[in-house]
Design a binder for these strands. Structure first.
Lengths: 196, 196
DNA sequence: CGTTTAATTCAACAGCCGTTGAACATCGGA
DNA sequence: TCCGATGTTCAACGGCTGTTGAATTAAACG
C-alpha cells in the first residue's frame, strides 16, 4: 500500500487538473469552485495542484486560455456584407458556445458576478476581442453605445441559455436562434438609433 | 459598561437587519454575503440575526419581498396600444431598477448564477410575474419562445448595466435607454419571427 | 412589585476554505 | 549506480462560514 510518492509511468496530471478546473469553474464560478473539489475531480491530492500552479487565481487564468483564436474567426466575421454582420457574429459566437459544453466565457461570466476583478476581465475581453474589431470595421455614429447594446444582448443570451437555462431557449437549435437574434444585433450595429 | 442584555427604548433592529441584508445580498449575491457581514453593517451581533430569522435562506427570502406590486404596475403596462407594449414594459422595468439602488431582482440575479435553487426562483419570477401576463394579453404565435427572447434581452440589460457595469450603458439616461431597447422587445413580442 | 417574555451579546461548535512544509517515491541524467 | 529533479501524499495552519446555547438586561404584563 504505497500511498505517498511519485507514481510509475508517464505523467499527465497537469492536464487532468486543468480539465477538472475548467469543468468546475465553468459550472460553479470562481468563488464556488474549490481547490479541493477540483483535486477530487482529478483524483488527486489538493496539494498537488500547488505543485503545478502558484495559487487558485493562476489556475483560473491557466484554465481560461481561450480556445477560439480571435485571429482566425474575426476575418471571417468582418468580411462580407456589413448588412449581415450581425448574423455572422451571432452565428460564430453561438457556435463556439455550443461546441464545447465547457466555455471559458461562461466561466468568466459566472465568476464576474460576485467578483469585481473578474467583471473587469470580462468587460475588457468583450470590448477588445469582440466590440472593437467589429465596430472598428464599420463607420457609424455612437460606436461605444452600439457596442454596449450588442454586449447586453449577447450577455443576456449567454445568461438565459447557459446559466439560467430558461427552458425554450436551451433547446432552440443554434441556427434558428441565430435567425431570431441576428436582427437585434444588426440593428444595434448599423440601424438608426432613435435617441428620443 | 453593560455589554450584553436588552437595550433600553424602542427596538428597530429587525428593520436594520433587513436593510443591511438587502444591501449585502444586492451587491454580493447570496453566497458571498455573510451573516457576520450583514450583522456588522447593522451594528449588531451575528447571533441576533438568528433571533429574528430562522436561518440565512429565510433572511434572504424576507429581504427579497418585492417592492413593486405587480398588481399595480401590470394594468398600466397592458393597457394601451399593443404596438407600444415593449416600450411601456422596458420603461417600467428600468424605472423600478433605477429607482432604488437596491433591487431584489438584481440580488436574485446575482445569487442565481452560483446557485441552481435561486436560478429556479428567478426563472419562475420572470415567467409568472412578467412574461405570462404580458404575453397572455397578446395573440401571437410561439409565445414561450417570444417570452424567452424578451427575457434574454432584459436579463442582459440588467447584467450589463447593474452587474458588469459596462461603461456607456451605466450612464445612459433611463428614457434614452428605453427608446433604444424598446424596439428589440417589441419585435420579440409582436414582430414576425423568421424561423429560417 | 414579581414574573414572564423579548432583545442582546459572548463563546463556542463543526465544517469548509486556500495554502504550506515535510516526507516519500520514482524518473532522468552523470 | 548514485543523485538531483520531479511527482505525490499527509498533516497541519489560520481564517472564514452558518449556527447554537447559555447568560444578561430590559420591557411588558399581571
Amino acid at each position: 500500500m504505497s500511498r505517498s510518492g511519485r507514481r510509475p509511468g508517464a505523467t499527465e496530471t497537469r492536464d487532468a487538473i486543468l480539465q477538472a478546473a475548467r469543468q468546475e469553474f465553468n459550472n460553479r464560478g470562481y468563488d464556488a469552485a474549490s481547490i479541493r473539489g477540483i483535486a477530487s475531480h482529478a483524483e488527486i491530492d489538493p496539494a498537488l495542484v500547488y505543485h503545478y500552479f502558484a495559487n487558485k487565481q493562476a489556475l483560473f487564468v491557466a484554465a481560461l486560455e481561450f480556445p477560439a483564436d480571435p485571429g482566425i474567426e474575426l476575418p471571417r466575421i468582418l468580411g462580407g456584407d456589413p448588412q449581415q454582420l450581425g448574423e455572422r457574429l451571432v452565428r460564430t459566437i453561438l457556435t463556439i458556445w455550443d461546441r464545447e459544453q465547457i466555455s471559458p466565457v461562461i466561466a468568466l461570466l459566472r465568476s464576474a458576478v460576485a467578483n469585481e476583478q473578474f467583471a473587469a476581465m470580462l468587460r475588457q475581453f468583450i470590448a477588445t476581442a469582440i466590440l472593437e474589431p467589429v465596430l472598428g470595421s464599420l463607420t457609424v455614429d455612437q460606436p461605444r453605445l452600439r457596442g454596449s447594446l450588442v454586449a447586453s444582448q449577447l450577455v443576456g443570451l449567454a445568461m438565459a441559455r447557459y446559466v439560467l437555462r430558461i427552458p425554450p431557449l436551451v433547446d432552440v437549435p443554434t441556427e434558428q436562434l441565430v435567425s431570431l437574434v441576428a436582427p437585434t444585433i444588426q440593428r444595434y450595429l448599423t440601424g438608426e438609433l432613435t435617441l428620443s
